[in-house]
């Protein structure tokens, strides 16, 4: 929908959600033009028709209850239509579909670091296959950032200290803008990059041309051993820590009686701040790893814990390029604290 090269009005529509956002936008533009036109017409016709030269004596009018009701209720009705429409759209944007390939993003002043599950890493670039649900799990190493792809009409803040998620389905190959839209200091406007949407075959080729560093989960497994996690989380009965296999995505009973679902943020917190939520039946003996593991390694550990799932179950991910399985549970939504 590029109107002209020099005076564009719309960014490319390159995701499945883009036209839906545009439709709502155009509806609102129409509403805006209509009401601005109406008000302008009222103001101008009245003030020209009843200008002092034409109408030296004003007719004193008190007001009108029916009119007040009319111009409260009609705008209210229209507002409610927009509200519901936009809310449905928002829920579709915020809740990732069950089947989605997962990519991890770390934002820092002033770059984007991307890790694909099967190993490749990139900076300020994100390669993805076309026509595929992609879910980004994102975290910041320092200040707030925000991951924005205008051509996809999606955006989400990237926070320090907890994962947020963003999903999209790119339906048009090409190269698109990536912006950090949350002001983040000196080189905020340099925190940009490219989203490269490729045919699946090309994407596979791109993946296999990667650095050969091993998958995220396998790197996580190495950390799991080297950091000594495995000594307590051996998975054997009688181990000092709970068996992590199958834990991810499932409810966990806590010592204080609460039940929480083990999502990415829960695993992250369990590593950095183990005392915050103690699993029922275990003592608060897990040491904190705060300051010892950077965000990228944490992501690898999280990916590993997630993958432990896969060993238990035999479903293979229907998602190209993903070595981790999609969540077995229809766990949806972005993680919240």
């Amino acid at each position: 929908m590029m109107f002209s090269k020099y005076l564009p009005f719309f960014p490319d529509q390159a995701s499945t959600i883009a036209w839906q956002v545009d439709a709502l936008y155009l509806f609102l533009v129409a509403i805006t033009i209509f009401f601005t036109g109406l008000v302008a017409a009222m103001v101008l016709t009245f003030s020209i028709k009843y200008r002092k030269e034409k109408n030296p004596i004003a007719t004193q009018i008190e007001g009108s209850v029916p009119l007040e009701i009319m111009w409260s209720v009609i705008p209210l009705g229209i507002a409610m239509v927009i509200y519901v429409w936009a809310a449905i759209l928002y829920f579709n944007m915020e809740r990732a579909p069950k089947q989605a390939m997962e990519i991890y993003v770390v934002g820092k002043q002033w770059m984007w670091k991307v890790q694909h599950p099967s190993g490749p890493r990139e900076i300020n670039q994100l390669h993805i296959p076309v026509d595929q649900n992609v879910r980004l799990t994102m975290i910041s190493q320092d200040v707030l950032h925000s991951f924005s792809i205008p051509e996809f009409r999606v955006k989400h803040e990237v926070l320090p200290g907890r994962y947020t998620q963003l999903w999209f389905n790119a339906n048009k190959t090409g190269t698109y803008h990536l912006f950090c839209t949350q002001y983040c200091g000196t080189k905020h406007s340099g925190m940009i990059g490219e989203i490269i949407v490729m045919e699946p075959a090309m994407y596979q080729a791109w993946l296999s041309g990667g650095s050969g560093e091993g998958s995220l989960a396998s790197n996580g497994e190495k950390l799991f051993t080297s950091l000594g996690c495995v000594t307590c989380h051996s998975g054997q009965s009688g181990a000092r820590g709970p068996n992590l296999a199958g834990a991810f995505g499932n409810p966990v009973k806590l010592a204080d009686g609460r039940t929480v679902v083990a999502d990415e943020n829960y695993v992250r917190e369990s590593i950095l701040n183990p005392q915050a939520k103690i699993v029922a039946g275990f003592g608060p003996i897990m040491p904190t790893f705060t300051g010892q593991i950077n965000e990228e390694s944490l992501i690898q550990l999280v990916a590993y814990v997630k993958s432990l799932q896969a060993e238990k179950q035999t479903t293979t991910g229907a998602v190209a390029g993903s070595t981790t399985n999609p969540n077995p549970e229809p766990k949806q939504g972005k993680p919240t604290k």
Binding site: M42, F46, S47, Y50, K52, A58
Partner: peptide, 23 residues
């Protein structure tokens, strides 16, 4: 959305004030 309504009311009332005024 609700907080927009009182503003709309004001705009309409100002416009209507001009009606049959001596502007």
């Amino acid at each position: 959305f609700l907080v927009a309504i009182p503003s709309a009311i004001k705009v309409f009332n100002w416009s209507a004030t001009l009606y049959k005024g001596s502007v």
